[in-house]
């Protein structure tokens, strides 16, 4: 191994690490706010990549129908709940969120897709199509059991993962897709050349991470999310609607997932079931951060990316073993360092 190869490996590791970092933050955010270990995060990656790939062939992506369909189901659930509670408030906003917007998106996709719009429009349309699936998932799967134990929520998350993966097979088919690079240039960076696409991924991830940080620090909603994450009961007492917080967290997670999907689509062939493994590496990053600290989770995810890159070089057959074994020393170290806290029983 020489210096050049080491630089290339670092570049590769950082590119993947940046994507894992986005996923790690999303998983952490959802866990902090709603206590759900978000297993289906990977599906949003696959949906984002596949939607973009379908749009690039000037076809209407399956997600457009999926959003309209799941939206309709969510609306029915909402109506039943309203009928049972004999309330009418909130129905208008639900109708807007679950019926009007998805239908408008479906119309937009059917109208725009055959015209082969510029790449930026395709990316925005992809995000618009995939992101609503986040809050819909929350409404259908999590909200009715929001106060259940962490274990029950984990089971539900696994079920949602399988359901979304199955829907992915139905709507995108079993074959994989790969999109052309957004930018194909090579950039000279001191002693090495980096592909512009890698730099784009790192920059885009960094911008999104900074935006999330600003959102948490400066906006009312960001602070509400942080408050919910710290203490759900307390947050409710001071008037923060925990359901809205959960919905927002799932929306952000879907945005991060779909965006990662758009970013990795030019690097590899994405299948309907590819997202899980990618998100799992983001999860390892989040665990390194102790499932509490955002900066540590992001750093951990970058570390996973670098480790993966070097492990692929030295012992490619054992790459995944090495990456996932990293969890054991990290968990050991964390359990030795942290003092034991009694489980919360009041949930």
């Amino acid at each position: 191994m020489n210096f050049d190869i080491a630089l290339l490996l670092i570049q590769d590791g950082l590119t993947n690490g940046a994507i894992y970092a986005l996923l790690a933050l999303a998983i952490l955010l959802v866990f902090a706010v709603s206590r759900v270990l978000y297993v289906p995060q990977g599906e949003f990656v696959a949906f984002g990549a596949l939607t973009l790939a379908t749009l690039q062939q000037a076809k209407v992506p399956g997600t457009a129908y999926l959003v309209a369909g799941i939206g309709a189901v969510a609306m029915v659930v909402e109506l039943v709940a309203a009928l049972r509670e004999r309330r009418r408030q909130g129905l208008a906003s639900s109708a807007l969120l679950y019926v009007v917007i998805p239908t408008a998106l479906l119309g937009l996709a059917v109208w725009l897709a055959p015209q082969k719009p510029p790449l930026l429009v395709q990316v925005l349309l992809t995000l618009a199509l995939v992101v609503p699936l986040g809050p819909m998932t929350y409404r259908l799967a999590v909200q009715p059991i929001a106060n259940a134990s962490v274990l029950v929520l984990l089971f539900v998350a696994v079920a949602v993962h399988y359901a979304l993966m199955g829907l992915g097979l139905v709507f995108f088919g079993a074959e994989g897709w790969r999109t052309p690079s957004f930018v194909s240039a090579q950039v000279a960076l001191g002693p090495m050349t980096a592909s512009a696409q890698s730099l784009l991924v790192i920059a885009a991830s960094a911008i999104l991470i900074v935006a999330l940080w600003q959102f948490f620090g400066r906006t009312l909603w960001g602070k509400a999310l942080r408050a919910t994450a710290m203490n759900r009961t307390g947050a409710r007492l001071v008037g923060i609607p925990t359901e809205a917080s959960g919905r927002l967290a799932f929306t952000l997670a879907a945005l991060f997932g779909a965006f990662s999907g758009v970013l990795i689509a030019p690097f590899t062939t994405i299948y309907y079931d590819s997202g899980f493994l990618v998100a799992l590496k983001g999860f390892v990053g989040a665990v390194i951060g102790g499932m509490t600290s955002y900066p540590l989770a992001a750093l951990g995810a970058v570390l996973v990316g670098l480790l993966e890159s070097f492990a692929s070089f030295y012992a490619s057959a054992f790459k995944e073993v090495i990456v996932f074994s990293l969890l054991i020393p990290v968990l050991l170290w964390r359990s030795l360092m942290s003092r034991h806290v009694e489980e919360e029983h009041d949930e």
Partner: peptide
């Protein structure tokens, strides 16, 4: 002799070693 996984986002490390 190198290995990779189907959903891997990058095989650059293995490819560098092969070419070397």
């Amino acid at each position: 002799s190198e290995r990779y996984n189907r959903p891997d986002t990058s095989v650059n490390a293995q490819v560098l070693k092969l070419i070397a």
